[in-house]
Design a protein around this nucleic acid. Sequence first.
RNA 1: GCUCGUAUAGUGUAGUGGCCCAUCAUGAAGGACUCUCAUUCCUUCGACCCGGGUUCAAAUCCCGGUACGAGCACCA
Length: 489
Amino acid sequence: MEKREKKERREGLPELKNATKGKVVLRFAPNPNGPLSFGHARGIVINGSYAKEWDGELILRFDDTDTVVKPPLPSAYEQIPDEAEWLLGFKPHRVVIASEQMPHYYEHAVKMLENNFGYVCQCTGEQFKEFRVSKTECPCRSNDVSLNLELWTKMTDGTFVPGDAVVRVKTAMDLKNPALRDWPALRIQNTAEHPHPRPMIGSKYRVWPLLDFQSAVEDHVQGVTHIIRGKDLMDSTRKQTLLYEHFGWTYPETMYWGRVKVHEWGGFSTSQMRRDIEAGLFNGWDDPRLPTLSALRKTGITASALRDFWVELGVTQKDISVPLSTLYSHNTKSIDDDAPRVSFVREPVHLKLKGEHSDNVNVEVHPNHPSRGMRNFDVSNKSIWVEKQDLEKSEIRLKGFADITLQNDGKTTSAQIGSIERNDRRPIVHWLPESGSVKATLITAEDGEIKHQNGLLESHSYPHGTMVQVERIGYARVIDSTTLMFTHS
RNA sequence: GCUCGUAUAGUGUAGUGGCCCAUCAUGAAGGACUCUCAUUCCUUCGACCCGGGUUCAAAUCCCGGUACGAGCACCA
C-alpha cells in the first residue's frame, strides 16, 4: 500500500468504530440529582458531536434509579434538556427516563431468574464480600428457579426489606477481576421513607435496578450502538458484557475518556454542591463560583467555546488537568469578533478639562468593524472620569480623544489638553465623559468570592446577555444597563 | 491487597514500525499592526516516563520497572 506524502493531522474527534451513517445511536445518561456540571458537558458534547457527524441519534437518559443516596431533583428533569440543547445547538433526539422504564427492568429480571443466570441472594453485603474475595460460591447461587421466583415475589411485595435480598447475575466466581463476580443487579429501596420525587413514581416500586443492570437493559431496548463514557465505568462494561452474553445480545462499541480536573477548581460533586447550596454557601446552581453549566453560561462562556474545548481534549484515556485559560481562549475566539467595546471606569476620579477641544468625541464600537458605527462621548461640559490607577503618570492619552497633562493644585486634579493627534508613546487610558456614563457594577467571582466592583459604565442599550469587551479589562456579559458579569480577561 | 487502565513540550493534543532530529493548539518571551493590557499576524522556547528485548528500522510491538488514575457499593 502506498503511503501518502505526508501524514495529515487528524481533525476533530477520533473515528467511531463500526459506525454506519444514519444508524448510530448514542446516549448521555446523567443522574438528575442536580443540573448539569462542566464535566457533564463532555458527555453531551462528545456523544452529541458523534451523533451529528454520523447522522445518528443522541438519547438523553435520566438514570434516576436511586432514591436514597442520590435522590433526583425534580427541577433537573426540565433543566437538563434545556441545557443540553443550549450546549449542542440541537435537541437530543430522544429522552428516556429510567424510572418510567421499570416494567422493562422487571421483565428482564424475571427472565434472568427463569433462565437461571440470575438468582436472589439473601446474604449480607459483608458475607458476600467474603465469597467474592475467596472465589467461593454463595449458597443462594444454587437456589432453583421456583425458589428464586418465590423470593423475587417477596422482594417486590414488601415481605423483604432493604438489605434482606438482592438479585445477582451469575458469572464465574473465579473471574480474575473480583469486581465482576456475581455482581448485583437489583436491590430493595425503602421507598416509603424515600419515595421517588417524581409523583408518578413515588413509592410505587420497592425493587430498583442498579446502574449496571438498568443501563445494560436500557441500552439494548433503545438500540444503542456506541457508548462513550468515563473510564471509571470500564468494569461496568465488563459486567454488562457478561449480562449481554446471558441474554444473547451484542454489546455496543465502547470508548472511554479519562478524568479531567480543572486546575482552578477543586473537586466538585453534584451531591456536594447540592448540600452546599441548601446550606446557603452558594446562591443557587448558577452561582458564578460553581462549575455548573448554568453558572458558566451566566458568566458568559459560550456553548461553542465549551464544544471546542471538549472536542479538543478528545477521547483519550489519560487523566488530565487543564487550566481555565484553555477554555477562556476558546471563549475569546468565539465572542471577540462580535463583542461591542464599552468603557468601564473603576475607582473613578473626576478630571476637569482645560484647553481647546471639540464638544464631541467618537470612538469605534469595534475597532475591526468600522461599519458598526461610533460611540459618541459628549465632553462639552469639560468633565470626565478616569481610573485612579491611571493617574500615576502625569502624561497620558485619553483613548480616542487627546493627550493630557495632569495638574494637581492640591485640591482638585485638572487635565490640560495637549495634542488632539497622538504624537508620542504615552500610555493610553480609557475614560468616560460625565454625561453619558452611569453608576454601575462589575460582578466578578474570584478565589471563591463574589466581588462587586463599583464604577462608572458607558451608557448603553445592549440587551441582557450581550457579550461585551470592557476596554482594558476583559470580557463581560450584560446583565442590565448598570450591571456587568465579568467573564475573563 | 486483588483487578483494570494510562504514560509525547508548562498544559492539552496528533502520531497505530520507516514520511518524526515528532503535529496542532494553548502558554511564556520577543516583534508587527492597533488611539484597549483586546483581536489579528510573525518569530522564538519547549516533549516521546525508565530499563531491557524484537526488527535492517520503534514514540509506535513485547517484557519488566516506576508514576498516576479507576473498580472491588444493596451510588450513578
